[in-house]
Nucleic acid binder design. Structure first.
Lengths: 126, 126
DNA sequence: CCGTATCCGATCCGATACTG
DNA sequence: CAGTATCGGATCGGATACGG
């Protein structure tokens, strides 16, 4: 991904930076703290290693994610949210998470949320 | 665009809902109040009528935008942000706008911002 | 465990022409 | 002014294989 020279507004730039099916999910997972590639791959259901690496790379180049490489064997690498950039972006994603929850609750999709422990059992009765 | 039955997390759903080159820009423009199709088309530089209509339709179906149709000629339609959904989404976009500004300032792209009046003349000296 | 490369179908979006 | 339809190139993302 490359940054264009001109955008309609800064918002468009940001939207472009988090474009990609897995980018928000990766950042969201990283809010829990630094992790390795393999952990991310295990935790993010359905992602392929290729997409994970590609999106990690882009987010790193954009300054939202940092990377620590430990020398020696076995290989060890940790990815983490940068501050303040990564964490600020997270605050936008936090709102988006809420919007998603609101939407699902209003459209009878709570069951999926309860299953994942995002919502507690037996939510407000209609 | 269609809503899938299952998502990794609610955040992914929201990200999907605002996927599309012009969606954030359209919503951003609507923060200024209700407007017509033709005004949007004029104000959003580079958009085609086709994309504008397509994205407006999707955002309307998703509940972020509302639409008032006035009877009689000349035809008159107004699009507006819904509350609370549209306005809540706007608050996430607000943060994304700031992130974009931050990025541009840190990468020597302020000139574009000053031109558009987003930043005042002569910002903080390095 | 970490990372790169290729192939290929799906989708996105711009251009353009046309209707009420 | 508001909205629909079609076509084609560009990009995205999944599968898969391979290398440090």
């Amino acid at each position: 991904m490359k940054i264009r020279a001109v955008y309609t507004c800064p918002l468009e730039l940001t939207h472009d930076m988090i474009k990609g099916k897995w980018k928000p999910i990766i950042l969201w997972r990283l809010r829990l703290g630094p992790t390795s590639l393999s952990k991310l791959e295990r935790d993010i259901e359905g992602i392929t290693q290729k997409m994970l690496l590609q999106h990690l790379k882009e987010l790193t180049e954009l300054g939202f994610i940092g990377k620590t490489v430990y020398e020696g064997y076995p290989l060890k690498v940790e990815y983490f949210l940068t501050r303040p950039q990564g964490e600020k972006l997270l605050s936008a994603l936090q709102i988006m998470q809420e919007i998603g929850i609101d939407y699902m609750v209003e459209h009878g999709m709570q069951d999926a949320l309860i299953e994942k422990g995002i919502l507690p059992q037996v939510p407000t009765k209609k």
